[in-house]
Design a protein around this nucleic acid. Structure first.
Lengths: 106, 106
DNA sequence: GCCTGAAGTTTGTGCTGCAAACCTGTTTGC
DNA sequence: GCAAACAGGTTTGCAGCACAAACTTCAGGC
């Protein structure tokens, strides 16, 4: 017995720098395409692609693949959940910042 | 050639949830001991210990080991650098939050 | 002198972020 | 018209690291 796990305070899925940037950028728009996101976040294609895949698997974003001018075009948007989660995350960061002494003691 | 690396935007050493909490708590005090930090951050001893070691190696904190009442007592404080870095980090998070479209374009 | 507990440290491992290689369709040169 | 370059992504390989469990050491009880 004992205390096995650290508090699940900040969600690493969202907290990860690349994805935090991604979600934050997405939260300011309705949707955005791959190339825009790449420029906005500074991520490489490969990393952007895998972060997006992860976010999609967690259902925080939806991904639509189309062809525009005969070129592949990947359009990404936050889901409702995604929008909530990124907002929550920033709130949690806020409370951490204003000192979240969160003793496990009761 | 090509673009090998993603922008070194957020320092993972500090951004990591446990260490972010740790540094933030430390930034509100002059110094704190191991047990206090454990309760304040909710980390397990093991993880707290290794995070502290890493922060110390990066010279963001100083660690002093004493005996108080014949018991080991580990006292931790931010270095000047550490204090700067955590402040910076929060600023960077702020700018990310207010939309950091940071196109690599010039 | 042995057991319990407090205060840390070390170890093992599974995940996962990163960069490089690869893929697929489309222009562009010639 | 066909090969090379390019645009837009995806897949792969590996190295680093966060986490939890096991171990350590010393202090009192009993």
């Amino acid at each position: 017995m004992s205390a096995p796990s650290d508090g699940p305070i900040l969600d690493r899925l969202i907290h990860e720098p690349g994805r935090l940037a991604l979600m934050t950028v997405l939260s300011t728009v309705e949707s955005a395409d791959f190339v825009f996101l790449q420029r906005a976040t500074g991520l490489t294609k490969g990393n952007l692609s895998s972060h997006l895949t992860k976010l999609a698997e967690a259902e925080l974003v939806t991904i639509e693949k189309r062809f525009v001018h005969r070129k592949p075009n990947t359009n990404v948007a936050l889901t409702t959940t995604g929008r909530e989660r990124i907002a929550q995350h920033w709130e949690q960061l806020d409370s951490l910042r204003n000192f979240s002494a969160r003793p496990r003691s009761e």
